[in-house]
Design a protein around this nucleic acid. Structure first.
Lengths: 255, 255
DNA sequence: ATTCTTGTTTGCGGTTCGACAAATAGCCTG
DNA sequence: CAGGCTATTTGTCGAACCGCAAACAAGAAT
């Protein structure tokens, strides 16, 4: 296998502080691996033998409860450091990572972490920041689940997905990887039924556009207003009652 | 102010890897500060000017939503590193820390982190582990809030509190700092009313014993079974119906 | 001791949302 | 192109749980 090119990681926040020699050193421990769509990169509970940086594609990270219910923790996007159980001193992966599209990642053996750190202490700071921002995300999610009703949680989640992996299309901004209503439900702590109803209601209002494993946000601004709770928007649950003329009774104007 | 004694932190996981000289060096940057009950150690949104280790007492860390709702993130116990926004590269504290009893903490200026790290690289590994375990906790909480109903969430939360800060008393194990039903509600994403009802039901079954700002777990084992969902236990909401003889209809035996 | 404040208990009505069910519609495969 | 699998939509029902309200303790302050 040929040597990996510096440009692969030189611009990533996690490695930006390193000099060219250091980058080469770091890359000399890595190999590049392809994961076809559906492939499991690592599994919850398995020994944490590697850590990774995603180059292309998208992964879903999910936790399975003892009762067999799944909760989606996050989606990994290119540039992300992931599978960093070793760095946190954990012997096992706490969740399962699956490729949702064909993906490519750099892979380091867990054992490489110590020597890498010895040569490039700045890596520790980078990892700390990465984990810190994940911690923040997790706390935001806890707060949302504690204080917001389902519709607003879905709105927030959608906005985050769009921000992270939005691809501009003519009708609006589309989440750039396939994602089911069930997935969204597992991110927001609700059921696929509720998500479907909510998206349908939003679609009727021209807020989003749905499709099979596809979500396009047409009006991010209005969706944001909804996420912030400025308007109750659609009742979503139960179809909104029809008014006298048989048209949908629309909620108060969006501010 | 006299020099701080090594024994203060020598046994803490975060500093265990350091030699005596290094510990002295680390301590030379710190000062010890007392926070009376109710004092705010740092406030959400304020500049992250310090980081801390708790020596005595207990702190509550909570986030406030824009709408003014509060969510309790965790309770800090002696030995914990906290307020480590700097380490994660964040300029502001993401939450507010308040002393729930008279407390004492070691305080370092944020600016000391870099020199400390330069001298003792092992500190980075320690911080990484600390943040990692917090991340785990947060994810566990997300999973619980996504998949468990209120009663089980409260059970899990109580067990965690007991594990972290349980003090043995004659009737069982008591949470060693004052905590209100409202606090528990803010940890589980519910209302103080629901918590009160649940605790009352449990008390009627001899599982716990309540008091003003006081919770004693009498039967941790049964509570655990409940948390794991092995039994539906008490209906909790609404008083359970009386059976023919006027006694409480008890649910199936605990496995 | 009396008053005040803060925390707790409990009841009741209403809403949100999950569980169950069944029909419809894309997409892939043979 | 037919068949089959998976994703989505939509309906109905019921229950978990929250909001409001009011009464009740237990400390703290004066």
């Amino acid at each position: 296998m040929g040597a990996l090119d510096r440009s692969l990681i030189a611009d990533m926040p996690n490695f930006a502080a390193l000099g060219p020699d250091e980058i080469d050193f770091v890359l000399s421990h890595a190999k590049s691996v392809r994961y076809p769509k559906g492939a499991v990169v690592f599994e919850q509970g398995a020994g944490a033998e590697n850590f990774f940086v995603l180059l292309h594609g998208n992964l879903q990270v999910a936790k399975l409860t003892p009762a067999g219910q799944q909760v989606v923790i996050r989606y990994v996007v290119p540039g992300d450091l992931f599978g960093i159980a070793v760095q946190m001193g954990r012997p096992h992966y706490p969740a399962t990572a699956t490729a949702v599209v064909d993906s490519v990642a750099l892979v380091w053996p867990a054992a490489s972490w110590a020597p890498l750190l010895a040569r490039c202490p700045a890596l520790a700071a980078g990892a700390l920041q990465t984990v810190g921002s994940r911690l923040d995300d997790a706390h935001v999610r806890v707060v949302e689940m504690s204080t917001e009703e389902v519709e607003r949680r879905v709105a927030h989640t959608l906005l985050r997905l769009v921000k992270q992996s939005g691809r501009k299309v003519e009708e609006g901004i589309q989440i750039s990887f396939p994602i089911t209503r069930e997935d969204v439900a597992q991110m927001t702590g609700t059921t696929l039924h509720s998500v479907s109803r909510i998206l349908s209601a939003w679609e009727a209002q021209g807020l989003v556009e749905g499709g099979r494993q596809r979500i396009v946000v047409r009006d991010p601004h209005r969706l944001f207003g909804l996420a912030e709770g400025r308007v109750a928007a659609a009742t979503a649950q139960r179809n909104p009652p029809l008014d006298g003329e048989g048209r949908r009774a629309k909620p108060g104007g969006v501010v």
